[in-house]
Design a protein around this nucleic acid. Sequence first.
DNA 1: TAATTACCTATTGACACAGTAGGTAAGTAT
DNA 2: ATACTTACCTACTGTGTCAATAGGTAATTA
Lengths: 135, 135
Amino acid sequence: MISTRGRYALRVMMDLAENDNGSFIPLKDIAERQGISKKYLEIIVKDMVSGGLIVGASGKGGGYKLCKKPEKYKIGEILELMEGTLSSVACLADKGFTCDRKSQCQTLPMWKEYDKMVHDFFYKKKLSDLIPKNK
Amino acid sequence: MISTRGRYALRVMMDLAENDNGSFIPLKDIAERQGISKKYLEIIVKDMVSGGLIVGASGKGGGYKLCKKPEKYKIGEILELMEGTLSSVACLADKGFTCDRKSQCQTLPMWKEYDKMVHDFFYKKKLSDLIPKNK
DNA sequence: TAATTACCTATTGACACAGTAGGTAAGTAT
DNA sequence: ATACTTACCTACTGTGTCAATAGGTAATTA
């Protein structure tokens, strides 16, 4: 289940894209427009900066800005960064995970197939796909 | 992320299918074969019985048994029963959930599309698909 | 220098997950 | 009738994550 971290991140990205006027957009504005607690958004937005999705600037006139065009962002990269993984099961999510039943596991192929489907779905979609064209 | 409830339930179902000899199979045997705590399995198996996936019989010679042929079980129905939902977001999972942004939500179509894809994937797959043919 | 804004650390309550523990009821073999 | 086996039931626990809240510091501009 996609948590608020992923969903809110998506909304922040969309807000930044839709309200882009070249300058930085304060978090306060985003929080008000989206109806989300600014304090909580701070945590999420911080990870988006450190993950390289957006850039932040302090001080007056500061705020946040996309660092790519909306059509260059894949939804998958946003969700994967915020949720940690898109994988359906622990044995595929954790890289260091070792399951002694891996070689004989009869369900693993299904999970792999599922994971591929999910990955493809979200990496085909772009941030720009979520934004109404008639803007 | 699919939890142990769903994954273990799947393994129990497969174990029952593969070791079916007409009579009831004790949980002890399943737990040993699968390497899962019998105590923990009890909780999971209880829900499988009340959910109508399998039948249980007490006393000597008792145990559990499938109530349909493996090819009649859809993986989706097993996972949905055990996980509560297969939905990706709360607003689609909870029936009584009300989101005041629903009408203007720009991401909802994507979640709906995703949910449909996931549903179709797991409801196309049958329990029999997970069991090796050369048995 | 004052105002604005991002950025940082810490804490909290609620809840689910994954399991453990110990007992009761039901049914079968002897 | 009794012993045995097996499902079934209630309760508890430790760990972790989720979704926030709170209060401060650092950076930048007017």
